[in-house]
Design a protein around this nucleic acid. Structure first.
Lengths: 133, 133
DNA sequence: AATCTAATTAGGGAATTGCCTAATTAGATT
DNA sequence: AATCTAATTAGGCAATTCCCTAATTAGATT
């Protein structure tokens, strides 16, 4: 999944720092290495991760590579996270209300107490013999 | 950093699936394990990661643990990502325009061509003898 | 109080990650 | 065309991740 790639890319302190540096300004690799006190090879590898996630576009200037952030990818990501929030809770609506494990205050379910419908809906596949709960 | 923790938590396919399941409905651990075809131990560990990132709140119902998503954490995260986008590019403004590596189309800098100011600003610490570039 | 069970933790193995140094590559400059 | 150098890739190592099975724990039920 592409979203996961973008998330993995920014879910690292070093890469997040690189990103914020590059949002402000173009840096060559050595500049970034100096700023973060890491080797150029390490920076280069981090940039690769960001690049492959689509977050960076590279441009060559003379001897130097300069990377820029593609802000639209960040915007899209923020949108996808915000979209998660809009997912609505689907209440458990079994045929018999008593079957719903969620409406019971004391217990969830026990083997056999839960209709197939509820079991499937609330507790995933009904495949295993033990009875999902 | 807390943001990184939240990002790491959701930067995993399995945990993202858990999150979307839990956004729709309360599940007990076995229900989640059934749904994702993983062991309960594995699910429990993933839930721990999500919980420690503040994304989940657990509630005990009878024998069963039910987790709910704290949507505000997701909202905050989306906001922080969106905030990155608003970071403005700071153009390189050295005393002498010629010193600015970024405005030059052909070359970035060479040893000695770059004023200390520019070097510091554009390319990080000026410490190393080689000259940052 | 004793029993029972969902959830968690412990321990372990294969795969991945993040850093390094050294070698190589791409391509700009002369 | 030959040279030069920033950036990348290769190789290696320690730490972490993600999954498993087995043991333990928390706490609800009887």
């Amino acid at each position: 999944m592409h979203t996961t790639m973008v998330l993995k890319a920014i879910a690292d302190e070093t890469r997040m720092k690189l990103l914020t540096l590059l949002l402000r300004h173009s840096y060559c690799v050595r500049g970034l290495a100096n700023a973060l006190e890491l080797t150029e090879a390490t920076i280069s590898q981090h940039l690769k991760v960001l690049r492959e996630a689509g977050l960076l576009v590279g441009e060559k200037r003379g001897y130097f590579m300069h990377y820029d952030v593609d802000r639209s990818v960040l915007h899209e990501l923020a949108g996808e996270i915000e979209a998660l929030i809009t997912i609505e809770r689907t209440p458990c609506k079994p045929a018999k209300r008593d079957d719903c494990p969620v409406t019971k205050s004391k217990s969830c379910i026990k083997q056999g107490q839960c209709s197939n419908q509820v079991q499937e809906f609330c507790h995933g596949s009904n495949q295993d013999k033990e009875g999902a709960s």
